Simulated scan of single mutants.
Amino acid sequence: MWVQIWERLLEQHRGKTFGVIAGVVLGIIYLIFGLFHMLIFVLIVYTGYYIGKKLDRNEPVFPAEDTWRRLMDKWRLFR
């Protein structure tokens, strides 16, 4: 049963699955070696999920072109 669940997760949600696993591993490392801050742990897990979701959709993780275009449009007002 568990094998089927993992196979299905890896087939349909590979990026999100690896993102959450990476987030949990990094979060546990943070909890063991750092101070106990649950909000930081949740932030790390969510960041892994978010990056994995972007990779599943074949979207750029950080949309550099869109960000650059927005910044340039705002600064053009001062020219």
Rank of each mutant, 00 (worst) to 15 (best):
M1P: 09
W2V: 03
Q4V: 03
Q4Y: 07
I5N: 03
W6Y: 03
E7G: 04
R8Y: 06
L9T: 03
L10F: 05
E11R: 15
E11M: 12
H13R: 10
R14N: 11
G15R: 01
K16Y: 02
T17G: 02
T17S: 13
F18M: 12
I21N: 01
G23V: 06
V24I: 15
V24F: 15
V24M: 14
V25W: 12
V25C: 14
L26I: 09
L26H: 01
G27R: 05
G27L: 05
G27Y: 06
I28F: 08
Y30N: 07
L31P: 01
I32L: 15
I32N: 11
F33M: 14
F36E: 00
F36I: 14
H37C: 07
H37R: 11
L39Q: 06
I40Q: 10
F41S: 10
V42P: 09
V42Y: 14
V42F: 11
L43T: 04
I44G: 09
V45P: 08
V45N: 09
V45C: 12
V45T: 05
Y46C: 08
Y46K: 04
G48F: 04
Y50L: 06
I51N: 00
G52C: 07
G52A: 09
K53C: 02
K53S: 08
K54W: 01
K54Y: 04
K54L: 10
D56V: 02
D56N: 07
N58A: 13
N58F: 11
E59W: 03
V61Q: 05
V61L: 10
V61T: 12
P63A: 06
A64W: 05
D66N: 13
D66W: 05
D66I: 06
T67G: 00
T67S: 14
R69K: 13
R69I: 13
R70E: 15
L71R: 07
M72W: 01
M72N: 10
W75A: 09
R76S: 13
F78P: 01
F78A: 15
R79E: 11
R79Q: 14
R79C: 03
R79V: 11
